[in-house]
Computed example of a mutant assay.
Amino acid sequence: MIYELIEVQSVKLSNITRCLKENVSLKKTIERLSINLKSFDKQDSLFSNYIDLINKYTNDETVFCVDSSDIVKSNSIVLEDLGTVKDGSIGKIEDGYNIFEIAALIPEHKMPLCVYSRLFSNAEKGFTSEKAEIFNGLEYLSRTFGTKSIRALDGGFDNNKFMNILLRTKNHL
């Protein structure tokens, strides 16, 4: 399946299936690939290997860009755990999801590399708060990459709660 992902440069199962050129119906092959993907349970190992690879390129001068955002789905009514968010562009409460991401800026690469990404909703089971989700991400960053690299945060993090956690863990701002 990895070969086909590279070959077809798509994550759509229908495109991958066509690339396989099997003598089985498209529908049957898509069903087989879906079942295999559902049974894949090595996500933690895969992500750990990815982070180990990125860690080889990070140092004290690496800049980690920290950003919190949202995805508004105002026209959707039946989405899993659809919650509410404050739409930053219009300042209204809308249906949607929150996103918290951290990307590493590494000189060897021409684009940021994602090191943490969390899509969450205030309607999902076990949700505590947006700040708790952000704190979890910042703590993950410190545990995984240490505290000496640089953290770049946008204006939304300009408050004492976020600054205190970063200063307490001796992160460089």
Rank of each mutant, 00 (worst) to 15 (best):
K12F: 03
K170G: 03
I35T: 10
S129H: 08
E7T: 07
L166C: 14
K86A: 07
I90P: 00
N49Q: 14
F47G: 05
K28T: 13
K38M: 08
N49E: 03
N36C: 11
S10L: 04
L141R: 00
N98R: 09
D154V: 10
F157T: 05
K110W: 08
N36W: 05
F135V: 11
V11L: 11
H109F: 12
D158H: 15
G146W: 01
P112G: 08
F145K: 00
I35A: 12
I90N: 15
C114R: 06
Y3V: 06
S89E: 03
C65R: 00
F135E: 08
V63L: 14
N164H: 04
E108A: 14
K56M: 15
A132Q: 10
F64R: 02
K73L: 13
N23M: 07
K27F: 02
M163Y: 05
L33H: 03
I77H: 14
R32L: 12
R18C: 02
R18F: 01
Y57L: 12
L20Q: 03
I90K: 10
D67F: 07
V8G: 02
I54K: 01
K131N: 11
V85H: 03
L141Q: 00
F127T: 09
I102E: 00
D81H: 12
R118A: 03
N49Y: 02
I30R: 04
N23R: 07
K56S: 14
S45Y: 05
T144R: 13
M111Q: 10
S121F: 04
I71Q: 03
T169L: 13
I134D: 00
I71V: 13
E4Q: 07
M111D: 14
I150E: 06
E133H: 06
K110D: 15
I16E: 01
C114F: 05
Q9C: 12
L173N: 07
E130M: 11
K73H: 10
S39M: 06
P112R: 02
I2P: 03
T147M: 03
L79T: 10
F100Y: 07
K170V: 04
H172C: 13
D87I: 01
I90T: 14
E94A: 09
L5W: 03
R118Q: 10
S117W: 01
S89N: 08
V63K: 04
M111A: 15
K28Y: 03
D81Q: 08
